[in-house]
Structures are given as C-alpha cells and as structure tokens.
C-alpha cells in the first residue's frame, strides 16, 4: 500500500470502494489500530494515534463477520465496551438497552446470544456495540456483505440515519458501488494498494480521473477519444446515451445494431455494435425499447467526460 492520503471531516461519511485484495480492509485496520503501518501516520481528531493500540483510539469497528462475542447475550455484547471502561454495571446495561432499542431489537431479542439471532439482527447488534461507546470514529468493514439484498438496502438507510443522528465520523469499506454511492459523503476508490480518487459520489461517478475509477462505480463506456475527434479516453455512462429520433440532434450520432439486451425491470441495457467498433452499452427505460435491431444512437456533448491519457 502506498500513496494513500485522505481525510474525513468530523461527522462525515467516507467509503473506501475497491475490488477484493485492493487494500481497503487493510487500510481500515490501520486506522483502527489492528495493524501497524511501516510508514505514515493516522490522525483522529487531529491527534496522532499511529502508535496507539486499538483500545486507546476510541474507534468503534463493525467487522465483516460482526465478531459478536458468542458467550454473551446481545445486551452484554453491547454493554461490553462500557463495562471495560469501568462504568457501573447497571448504567452499562441501561445504555446498551437504549442503543439496542434505537437499532430496533425487542427486549426479548436482547437476551439472546448471537447464534440465536438472524443475520440482520446480528448486524444491528454489532452496530449498536460500536456506537454505544460514543466513538470518535466508526469503522465499518463490509457491514452488509452477509445480508440479502432487501435487508441490505433497508439497513443501509438505517445506518445512514443513525450516523446522521449520532454525528459520528464514519469510514466504511465495501466492494459494492451502489452501496458506496448511496450512503457516503465521500467515496474513495482504491486499487492495488493505491487510493485513485476521493470525492463526493456524483463527482467520482460523473468525473472519474482514471478508467479504473470509471468502471469501479458502475457500467461505463470507455471510448477512444480519437473516434470522437477528442484526445484521451471518453467516458459515457450508459444511461446518458440516447436512442431514437433525438439521437440525430447529438453532436455524435450513428446507426448501430443491437447485439444483446438485458431486461432489468424498469430499465433495460442494450449492447450496440457498429461495424468494427467496440460495443456501446446503453441503458434506457425498458418501455422505450423497440424490437428493431438497427437503432439510432447519440451521445450528448455534456454526457462525454474526457479522461486524459496519463499513466495507466
């Protein structure tokens, strides 16, 4: 890992996005104090914590496996961080109950051991356990990876609400671009131990600095600039490409053959091909799609984002 430098403003939500093995979990562990960097510094609220062990960083972490203590009830799991701070036992349990209520666990569920809770409930307990210690920093390592899609989306919303209410500075690690874009104030895209770009979701999505960043955040058409009379690589998001009669109004437009279609419910993705040219992905409302194979296609000028050709 090298050339990694980023900051999160207090109360902000930063997500590190990248493929598995890119170093994003390592980075989160460095921030949490579970690993020690060979070089570089970690600062929390302006204080250099690089040499401090995890217990002295006041950073709550939610592990991908949740790492709930199997021998303790949900309530005792949450009160653990308060108990080790030497607070009166009664106070610990009361605060644990309060936090578990906020994440939506019923009193009966709070008495259960982790093995007797569902995946979603375990995730809530893990989150409550990390938040109840009023951390200066909340670290989330793939917190939704073990949940089904519906629950994932629901918990994602709850996490964002809790984080706003709490005002806790948060760093999340994920490989899911949708998740990163949905909850973050800032998204950092990582690859091979490097942080390629950090910015607000809309910025990294629409104005990626490298082709890798463009692809990391979703489907992207990467067109050789020369094809369009431009330099560098031109990135066009599939949903910004237009088809049908309006296409002729675009600066760049042509007729192409539909070689593949995927129906996604409200939308459909069409693969278009012009002789000898790479496939162009187009995402349109499914209702707008005609059955004809020859389609008029156009790229509006403001849909094209030029990525200069620098180092790969």
């Amino acid at each position: 890992m090298r050339d990694v430098s980023f900051g999160v403003t207090a109360g902000g939500f930063l997500t590190l996005l990248g493929p598995s093995g890119c170093g994003k979990t390592t980075l989160a562990k460095l921030v949490g104090g579970y690993l020690t960097p060979a070089a570089g510094r970690v600062l929390i609220l302006g204080k250099d914590v690089t040499a401090l062990p995890p217990e002295r960083r006041n950073a709550g972490m939610v592990f991908q496996s949740y790492a709930l203590f199997p021998h303790l009830s949900a309530r005792r799991n949450v009160s653990f961080g308060l108990e080790v701070r030497g607070l009166p036992y009664r106070t610990c349990l009361d605060r644990a109950d309060g936090m578990l209520e906020r994440v939506g666990l019923t009193p009966a569920e709070r008495d259960r051991k982790p093995a007797a809770l569902s995946g979603g409930q375990q995730q809530r307990v893990a989150l409550a356990r990390a938040l109840v210690i009023q951390p200066d920093l909340l670290l989330l390592d793939e917190p939704f990876a073990n949940l089904d899609r519906l629950l994932r989306e629901q918990l994602r919303g709850e996490l964002r609400r809790l984080q706003r209410e709490n005002g806790v500075t948060t760093i999340m690690v994920t490989h899911d671009p949708e998740e990163a874009l949905a909850v973050s104030d800032l998204v950092g895209v990582m690859n091979a131990g490097r942080l390629l770009q950090v910015g607000p979701p809309a910025e990294v999505y629409h104005r990626p600095r490298t082709p890798f960043v463009a692809r990391a955040l979703g489907d992207a058409n990467l067109i050789d600039g020369a094809d369009l009379g431009l330099s560098g690589t031109v990135m066009v998001r599939p949903e910004r490409v237009v088809i049908g009669p309006v296409a002729s109004g675009c600066l760049w437009h042509w007729t192409a053959r539909a070689v593949g279609r995927s129906f996604l419910g409200p939308d459909a993705v069409v693969e278009l091909e012009r002789a000898g040219r790479p496939v162009l992905l187009v995402r349109v409302r499914a209702a707008d799609l005609s059955a004809t194979s020859d389609i008029e296609v156009g790229i509006p000028t403001d849909a094209a984002w030029v990525i200069p050709d620098t180092d790969p």
């Binding site: 949490g32 104090g33 579970y34 062990p53 995890p54 217990e55 961080g81 080790v84 210690i133």
Partner: peptide, 8 residues
C-alpha cells in the same frame, strides 16, 4: 480484536 477495539 473486537474486544480491544471496544476499549478492552
């Protein structure tokens, strides 16, 4: 590790 992170 989780215990340490929680302040233990």
């Amino acid at each position: 590790a989780a215990a340490r992170g929680l302040g233990a």
